[in-house]
Simulated scan of single mutants.
Amino acid sequence: MTRVARALSELGHYHVMLKGCAGQLIFEDDDDRLYFLNLLNRRFTSAHIRLLAWCLMDNHVHLLFDDLDNQMSVAMHAIDTAYAKHFNQKTGRRGPVFQERFKSVIISDDKQLLRCVRYIHDNPAKAGISSAPLYRWSSFHEYFSHPEICDCEGILNLFGGTEAFYLSSTDGKPNPYFMPEGKHISDMDALEVARALLAPHEPYQLKTLPKSERNRLLAVLRHRGFTIDQISRLTGIGTNIIQRAK
């Protein structure tokens, strides 16, 4: 099947996720993580790509970068190939380490950009591993010290400085940004995105609202990419009612 060419961002900003094949681990230890970061830095520097945020998880990686020269695909292929060679030689396994095609989201404006930065840094907390300030393997700490591989200045200026960045990152407010699973929202992101879209209501409160308001908000969730089953699990409302809501 012929692949559809990736859409290009007018601003040059992209959020990319690399996942291990079949959900497998892509890092055995911290040496692997350091190898990946050094490789990422070298390849992005040579391709004139500015890295803005990153987070390494056990079986996936999130990256946010500025690629005005449209070198993303070439750079990501080089990183994929080089890291697979390293990882396979070390572990004795064969084949690709990452899923064949990485996911990418175009970042269209500054508001989406800042929400994406927070989303990336929040990944360890969502996984129940660590809060963003305490997690070693993300760019969060680069925003409070001398940057190592990230270009932090532009993001900090948009937030309004280091203090504003920290407060916005740790205020506990739900973030409406998400990484799509095909056309839909992943279960991991569903609750937080729903809370952001429905505020000041919590998802479970929809069934207590007047019918017209309830149906309007159900339609908002469906339009944003929630499946009917996801909405039913979050709200406790029956699937037939959700399907008819307009």
Rank of each mutant, 00 (worst) to 15 (best):
M1F: 12
V4G: 08
A5G: 15
A7I: 05
L8T: 14
L8G: 00
G12S: 12
H15Q: 13
K19D: 11
C21N: 13
Q24C: 02
I26S: 01
F27C: 00
D32R: 07
R33A: 10
F36H: 14
L39D: 06
L40G: 03
A47R: 04
L51I: 08
C55K: 03
M57D: 01
D58M: 00
N59Q: 02
H60K: 06
L64N: 01
D69S: 14
V74C: 00
I79S: 01
I79Q: 01
D80M: 00
A82H: 05
A82M: 07
K85S: 05
K90E: 07
V97T: 14
F98K: 05
F98M: 07
I107M: 11
I107E: 11
I107T: 12
D110M: 13
L114K: 08
L114C: 08
N123G: 12
A127S: 10
I129E: 10
I129Q: 01
A132T: 04
L134K: 12
W137R: 08
F140I: 11
H141E: 09
F144V: 03
I149H: 11
D151C: 05
C152R: 09
G160L: 05
G161A: 00
E163T: 10
E163K: 05
S168K: 15
D171I: 09
P174W: 08
P174I: 02
I185W: 02
I185D: 10
D189C: 01
A190W: 00
A190S: 07
R195P: 04
L198E: 06
E202V: 08
T208E: 13
T208Y: 04
L218W: 09
L218F: 09
L218Y: 09
A219W: 15
A219N: 15
A219V: 02
V220Q: 14
L221W: 12
L221T: 06
R222T: 14
G225R: 08
F226G: 14
I231V: 13
G236A: 00
N240W: 05
I241T: 15
I241A: 11
